[in-house]
Each structure stands twice: as C-alpha cells, then as structure tokens.
Amino acid sequence: MKNTVLIPTYRRPLDLSRCLLALQVQTKPVDQVIVVVRDTDIETWQFLAEFNPQNLPLQTVKVTQPGVVAALNAGLAVVKGDILSITDDDAAPHRDWLERINAHFISDSCIGGVGGRDWIHRDTKIEDDSRLVVGKLQWFGRVIGNHHLGVGEPREVDVLKGVNMSFRTQAIGQLRFDERMRGTGAQVHFEMAFTLALKRAGWKIIYDPSVAVDHYPAQRFDEDQRHNFNEIAFINLVHNETLVLLEHLPPLRRTVFLLWAILVGTRDSFGFVQWLRLLPSQGQLATKKWLASWRGRWQGWQTYGGEWGTRGPLWG
C-alpha cells in the first residue's frame, strides 16, 4: 500500500518542521507528503523554500480560501496513495505510525478509516489520563471524544480526530470535507462530518491507541483560541455540531437530540441545565455561552434546511 500524508498548515513553520522531521524517520516510508499552505503565509513559504526534504517526496499545494476544510479539499485533489493519513502541523507522528495504520487496512478490506491517540504536550507535562470510551456518538446525540486519552485494544468507533486520522482512498471516493462548516481556521467538528459520512456508507472506523502522534497544541490565528471564550467561535462550534448531527441521525433520534441539546447540552454546547449548573461558578460567562449556544443551534438548524416544509416532520 502506498501512503499519502496530508498536512494543512498556517503560520507555524517551527511546528511544521517538527512534523516533517517525524515523517522522515517512519519505519514505513511515506510515498507522498502534501503540505497545503495559504497564499498569504509568507513565513511558511520561506521555511519550505529552505527546508531539506531528504527522503520525503514533498509536494506543496497553494490555497487562497481560509479554513481547514478548504485546505484539506485542495489536498485531496492531488492524493495518489492507497491510504491517506491526515495530521496537524503541530503534531509529530510516532516512528511506527504508518506501519501500524497499514496493518489495520491490510487486515480487513471493510475498514475505511483508522485513527489513534494524540499524546497532548502542555509545557513540560503530557496528559496521561486514560479513557476506554472514545469517539462514540450516543443514541441521543451526545458525542464522546477522548481520542487523546484512549487506552485498550483497537475497536470500532463513530468519530475520529483530525490530528490523527487515516482513510482508504477507495472509501473516500468523491467524498469531500463539508464546506458548510463555519470558522476561518479550525472549523471544529469537520472530521465528525467526514467520518460519520463514511459510517453511513457502511465502512468500519477503527480507533487504536497504539497508532499515536505527539500533539503540541500551538497558537491558532483565527477566532477560535482553544480555552478562551469567543462568541463567534462558540456559535460556529455549536452550528457545526448541530448541522452534522441533524444530517446523520435518523428522524426519531434527531428529535430527541434537539430536545436534549436545548434542555441539557454539554460543557461545550450549553443547554438550559448546563447553564444552571455552571451559573454559580461562571456567572455572566455562563449566560454568554448559553445564548451563543442557542444562536448556534438555530443557525445549524437553518443551514440544515430546518423549515418544516423543506425536510418534513422530524418524527416522520
């Protein structure tokens, strides 16, 4: 099997260098490395002009539209490998990353996607907690991530994480990342839309903790600043989640999801119960998150085509 690695990058040349150096020492050599770079990213273009790829078959793709979705779709257009592996510029795959990925795809022709653990480095510490439940979509619409904490044997999951996910190009076919995902950079939940689409098409999605990358969360140059509240980023996150789940869930579960999302929700997408629970500790910030969640739900419903006459009754 020939392996293509696709890396979207933006203004993080030092991180990109670490990522490329990790790919140079893979136990299974890379057959194609695609780095997608914004036209305005002078720092990265300068770095690439001076970088010595050595044994890496490095290919660059220029993109003018902001956001990870546009970058990945531009990269998809030139993929030549049998297996496409996607990682972030602020990640460094372990030496046996591609070798372990290929072993899964070779073992079962029904496997369409493989992902693994991203070991998160924060300053001098590594997040080393553990979880058995990873990448699952519960029946009422709550998504459990935990990809950075997964332990145990390889198993089927519903959702992979963008920093460490690989796909059989035969499974991808004409599928592309959803351009309706909002955001000018990270576009949270873009990978959920992609992997759930493959699940609907009948492909197995596997999570194996030993398929690992080291992840050094770097600065983002958009409205989504990870742990700092930004109203636009919050609305975009909830919009994207709502749109993806409305399209994936069958009618009855879709109705349950909307009720649960509005009444309960999660720490990332507030419902009424979450607002009440966090109001004593977060005060006005909790109210801002709740209102932003409402707007995100409503906008996600509108993008989905939520007028009753367009989609029909949710329970029908």
Rank of each mutant, 00 (worst) to 15 (best):
M1G: 01
V5S: 10
T9I: 08
D15L: 11
S17P: 01
R18T: 06
C19I: 04
L21C: 10
L21R: 13
L23K: 12
V30K: 00
V30S: 04
Q32I: 15
I42Y: 14
T44H: 05
A49K: 09
N55L: 03
P57F: 03
Q59I: 15
A71S: 15
N73R: 12
A77S: 13
V79Y: 02
V79H: 06
D82W: 08
I86W: 03
A91I: 01
A91Y: 00
R95T: 02
D96P: 03
W97P: 15
E99L: 11
E99G: 02
H104S: 05
H104N: 05
S107I: 08
D108Y: 01
C110P: 13
G116S: 06
G116A: 07
D118Y: 06
W119M: 14
W119R: 15
I120T: 15
H121L: 05
H121I: 00
T124K: 07
I126R: 10
E127S: 14
E127N: 14
D128Q: 15
S130D: 08
L132C: 01
L137D: 14
G145M: 12
E153R: 13
E153W: 08
G162V: 06
M165P: 02
S166P: 14
G173M: 02
Q174F: 12
F177Y: 06
M181C: 11
H189V: 08
F194G: 02
L198S: 11
I206Y: 01
Y207R: 05
P209N: 04
V211Y: 07
A212I: 06
V213M: 01
V213I: 07
V213E: 05
Y216W: 00
D222Y: 03
E223M: 08
E223G: 05
F229G: 10
L243A: 13
L245D: 00
H248C: 08
L252W: 01
R254P: 00
V256S: 05
V256A: 10
L263D: 07
G265C: 11
F270R: 12
L276P: 02
R277V: 11
L279P: 01
T287N: 11
G296Q: 07
W301D: 00
T303V: 07
T303W: 01
E307V: 04
G309D: 07
R311P: 05
P313V: 04
P313C: 09
W315Q: 01
